[in-house]
Design a protein around this nucleic acid. Structure first.
Lengths: 200, 200
DNA sequence: ACACCCGATGTCAGCAACTGTCATCGCTGG
DNA sequence: CCAGCGATGACAGTTGCTGACATCGGGTGT
């Protein structure tokens, strides 16, 4: 690839983000993105599966990092604690891309179709989180259920992080606050039933 | 509207469901759906916002029913219990549409784009559930967090319900099993911290 | 130096999901 | 009988996205 001109992929990403900010996601066409990046529309689709995918590049990394962090928690750690601690491992991820993450969050918040794609990303994270928990010996449906709660806390915590004024607290703290809220308010009430119990 | 011929909307819905079953969601075009229903493609889009929306007709009802059930729980009920009990109110909903619900679930399970739309429906239910919990006096982020857990349990429970052999247990039982799993496995570990606590 | 290969890109044709616009049809109330 | 109105038909146009094939430029082996 010769000398280092930014590379089509990077230029496409920056062009798309700028245009989504300027005209909104629905207001920009893939042709415009390609033009600003100095390539053809066809090349856009060679690098990104669709118009939304531009903003979901690092999500596989994010997912992998989370799963590894859960898998490597000290044995014996309670599931929800393992999940809560794992989010500390994601601080670095968002700290490195702080500026991008915030621009991206604003664009996604303004476009329903991007929010929908974000839900898919969260569902994917939830699935690999559940798999990591099963790897720790947690059975179903507990693994899936703890994963749901964990990803839910991540979503709520991330929103709080984005909305927070500078200096922003660590993302992991925002997430932990959501998890603590569940512990404080969610669980009181009826005693836990062991086993399935009779239905009807 | 004259005498009772099934009505374009109903014919479109049945035509779409049949075709999605026969050829898969991606394998059928809106033109084919319209043709089978005996109307033009344009009419399809007058009744449904897009190709996926056909299968998400009753979701507003579902959401409303859930929110009402939570709102009308006896005062003093623990949040997660109020949510668990509310799902009993949805039994009637799925019992009335049992056949449709199962056909629909199979089609959705086979089509990624429909699963994505399903996530949007769940997110919408989650938001109105959180609103109902705030209406009961629960503060943020607890309301959102309990709503996440509740909808997560609904998703897991619904999948179990669909996968179950006849005679199917009540849906509410499947959901409750997921909630109980969270209570049993999720919460042990560190004591609950009150307030944000120091970070670092 | 030369032929070769290969990955990235350009070019072009085409399908399918939608959308805007206007004409039409059938019923319903006055 | 007509005026109005809601539902539909007809049709053209935009946009996202795909397949197929040509091209280009740089690195490789001989």
């Amino acid at each position: 690839m010769g000398r280092w001109e930014p590379g089509a992929r990077g230029r496409l990403l920056e062009a798309a983000l700028e245009l989504y900010e300027e005209r909104g996601f629905e207001g920009t066409t893939t042709a415009e993105i390609a033009e600003r990046a100095g390539v053809t529309e066809r090349t856009f689709f060679r690098h990104f599966a669709d118009k939304r995918e531009v903003l979901f590049d690092g999500s596989a990394d994010l997912e992998g990092t989370l799963a590894e962090a859960v898998a490597s928690a000290p044995p014996g750690t309670a599931p929800l604690d393992a999940v809560g601690d794992a989010f500390a491992a994601l601080d670095a991820f968002f700290e490195e891309r702080r500026a991008f993450s915030l621009r991206r969050a604003a664009v996604v918040a303004a476009a329903p179709r991007l929010q929908e794609r974000e839900l898919l990303k969260l569902a994917s994270m939830r699935d690999s989180l559940a798999a990591a928990l099963r790897g720790r010996g947690l059975a179903e449906p507990a693994a899936s259920m703890v994963a749901e709660a964990g990803i839910g806390a991540f979503r709520i915590g991330f929103e709080a992080w984005v909305a927070a004024a500078e200096p922003r607290p660590p993302l992991a703290d925002c997430v932990r606050q959501a998890l603590d809220a569940l512990r404080e308010h969610g669980l009181s009430g009826r005693p836990v039933r062991i086993g399935t119990g009779p239905h009807g």
